[in-house]
Design a protein around this nucleic acid. Structure first.
Length: 466
RNA sequence: GGCGCCGUGGCGGAGUGGUUACGCAGAGGUCUGCAAAACCUUGUACACCGGUUCAAGUCCGGUCGGUGCCUCCA
C-alpha cells in the first residue's frame, strides 16, 4: 500500500508498526450545524482508505473524534466556541446542539455507506485525559498561563514549523487578523481556556488552572493516544488542518512522548461547487437532503467523488452528479448480469480476475480511484458486449463483491427480478418469436412501469433496472 | 502580504518523457421488427512563451489566468 505522506511530501509504502493492525485516526466534525457535501467529501475519502486496507487483508483500528466543545470560530483560538454559538442560534444548550448534530453525523455515515469507525470518541467525554495531557506539558515546561487560558509555547518546540513548511514570521507579518497580544508567540495556542467571568458557559469543567474548557487541538492528541498509542500509523484530515490543527497536534503530542506522533499523514483536498469554494457566506453548502430531494441516490455522490483523486481539488455541479448517476446506472446494469448468465462457450474468468487485481492495485497506489474506475469501465463494456457465461459467474460475483468492498456502491444489493417479472419477459419473447409486435411492445411497457428495461441480444432478452 | 496548488476536448477527470485513460453529453455508422445496449468512426485537448531532450501534457525558467490556507467556512 502506497500513500502520499504530508510529513515527507512523498509517496511512501505503508509499514504498520504492528501488522496486520493499522492504527488510524481521523479528525472528525465539529457538530454545531448540518454538514455539507464538502464535509462528507473527506469522510468518503477515508472510507476508501479503510476499505482498501480491509481488502488488502489489513485490520484498521479506526478512531474518529467528534468535536463537541472547544472549537472556536477561528482556528487560531479567537472568537467564541462554535457549539455555544450554535446553541444561541437555536435557543438550545450547547449540550443539546452537540447531541443532535452528533447523532445526525453518525446517521450520515450510515446513509453514505461509510464503514463505521471502530470508535467514535467525543471530546466532552475525555476531559480528564485532556487535562492530564496539559499537566504533562506543564511539567515539561511547554506551557504558560495568561488571562484567558493556558497556552502552549511554540518557541519551545523547535520543529514547530516543519510540518506545514511555512515561514511563520513572514506569514504573521502579513496576517490581517489581530491576535491576543498576551501570547508570547503568534503561533502559540490554547490548551485550556478559562470560562468568561461575566457569564456561565453551557459546557465548563474544573481544572487545576481554573474553570473552563479544553482547547480545540488537545482533544485529538488525548483521544488518539489513549486508544491507539503514542505513535499512529496513519492520521487523516482535510488540507486546511495542515498549518494549524495538525501542526499543533504534533507539537503537543511529541513534546509529551518524545516519539513521532504519526508515521503517515494523509490530507484530502477540497471540493468546489460551480467553481467556488463551499462557504457559509456563499450559501452553497449542499446537504444530503438537497441531493435526495432531487431524487438522486447518495451512491451517485459517492461515485462522483471517487471519479477524482483525493489530493486534487474536485468540482461539484448538479450536472456532474447526474453524469455520475448515469454511470452508476450502467454499473448496476452490469451487476444485473449475474442473475442472467447465458449459454455460450466462453470463459474469461481469468480476465475478470486480472481486472479485479488491477483495480485493487490502483486503490493501493495512493487511492487512485479514477484509474480503478477506468479499468472497471473497460471490463464493463466487454462484458456487456459478450454477456456473461455461466462458467464466468463465480469469478464475476467475486469481482462484484470486491467492487462493493472497495467502493461501497451496493452493486450486489440489487435483487433478481420476481418470478412474475420473469414470466412477463418470457411472454414477451414468445410474442416476438411469433412476430406479435403489438403484444411484445405492450409487455415491454408493462415491465418498464415496474422499473425493468429489456434489451434483446443474440442470446435472448437481458433485463436491467431503470 | 506570506506559503502552496492548479491550468487537459461541450462538461467532468486520469495521465509515473516515447502508439492522446476513463465517464457523461453530441454527431455519423453497424446491428435491430421497433427500441435498448454494445461496437466502430468523429470532434484541430493538453493556457502562453522560451529552454533541456532523439522525444515534453509530462522536466526547467518566465508570462498570464484560476484557486487553496493564513481570515466566517472542511
Amino acid at each position: 500500500m502506497q500513500l502520499f505522506n504530508t510529513l515527507t511530501r512523498k509517496i511512501e509504502t505503508l509499514q504498520p508498526l504492528n501488522p496486520p493492525h493499522v492504527n488510524l485516526y481521523t479528525c472528525g466534525p465539529t457538530v454545531y450545524d448540518y454538514p455539507h457535501i464538502g464535509n462528507w467529501f473527506a469522510y468518503i475519502r477515508w472510507d476508501s482508505l479503510v476499505r482498501t486496507l480491509l481488502a488488502s487483508d489489513l485490520k484498521p483500528d479506526w478512531v474518529m473524534n467528534i468535536t463537541d466543545v472547544g472549537h472556536l470560530v477561528s482556528d487560531a483560538d479567537e472568537g467564541e466556541d462554535k457549539l455555544e454559538k450554535g446553541a444561541r442560534r437555536e435557543d438550545k444548550t450547547a449540550w443539546d446542539v452537540a447531541e443532535f448534530y452528533g447523532n445526525y453525523f453518525v446517521q450520515g455515515l450510515q446513509r453514505l455507506n461509510i464503514v463505521m469507525p471502530g470508535r467514535i470518541t467525543k471530546a466532552t467525554e475525555h476531559i480528564a485525559e485532556q487535562i492530564e495531557l496539559v499537566q504533562k506539558l506543564e511539567e515539561k515546561g511547554f506551557t504558560y498561563v495568561i488571562s484567558d487560558g493556558v497556552y502552549y509555547d511554540t518557541s519551545k518546540f523547535p520543529r514547530y514549523r516543519d510540518f506545514a513548511r511555512l515561514d511563520i514570521e513572514e506569514q504573521q507579518a502579513g496576517a490581517r487578523v489581530e491576535y491576543n497580544t498576551e501570547k508570547r508567540n503568534p503561533t502559540d495556542f490554547a490548551l485550556w481556556k478559562f470560562s468568561p467571568k461575566d457569564r456561565q458557559r453551557d459546557m465548563e469543567w474544573d481544572s487545576p488552572w481554573g474553570k473552563g474548557f479544553p482547547g480545540w487541538h488537545i482533544e485529538c492528541s488525548a483521544m488518539s493516544m489513549k486508544y491507539l498509542g503514542s505513535t499512529l500509523d496513519i492520521h487523516t484530515g482535510g488540507i486546511e488542518h495542515i498549518p494549524v490543527h495538525h501542526t499543533n497536534e504534533i507539537a503537543q503530542s511529541e513534546a509529551v512522548t518524545g516519539k513521532p506522533f504519526s508515521r503517515i499523514w494523509l490530507h484530502s483536498n477540497h471540493i468546489t461547487v460551480n467553481g467556488e469554494k463551499i462557504a457559509k457566506s456563499a450559501g452553497n453548502g449542499i446537504t444530503l437532503e438537497d441531493i435526495e430531494s432531487r431524487e438522486l441516490p447518495l451512491a451517485a455522490l459517492r461515485l462522483h467523488i471517487l471519479e477524482s483523486h483525493y489530493r486534487s481539488q474536485s468540482k461539484f455541479s448538479w450536472e456532474s452528479l447526474e453524469a455520475a448517476q448515469n454511470r452508476l446506472n450502467g454499473l448496476q446494469a452490469m451487476a444485473a448480469l449475474r442473475w442472467q448468465p447465458v449459454t455460450i462457450d466462453r470463459d474469461e474468468s481469468a480476465a475478470i480476475k486480472t481486472t479485479a487485481l488491477a483495480i485493487l492495485a490502483d486503490m493501493q497506489n495512493d487511492l487512485n480511484s479514477p484509474a480503478a474506475l477506468a479499468k472497471l469501465s473497460a471490463l464493463q463494456n466487454h462484458l456487456e458486449t459478450a454477456l456473461l457465461s455461466a462458467s464466468e459467474l463465480e469469478a464475476f460475483e467475486h469481482f462484484l463483491s470486491l467492487l462493493d468492498n472497495l467502493f461501497g456502491l451496493g452493486l450486489m444489493n440489487q435483487p433478481d427480478v420476481s418470478v412474475q417479472q420473469k414470466q412477463l419477459i418470457a411472454e414477451r419473447q414468445t410474442a416476438r418469436d411469433t412476430k406479435d409486435w403489438p403484444l411484445s411492445d405492450q409487455l415491454r411497457d408493462q415491465l418498464a412501469d415496474q422499473g425493468i428495461a429489456v434489451r434483446d441480444t443474440a442470446h435472448g432478452p437481458i433485463w436491467y433496472k431503470i
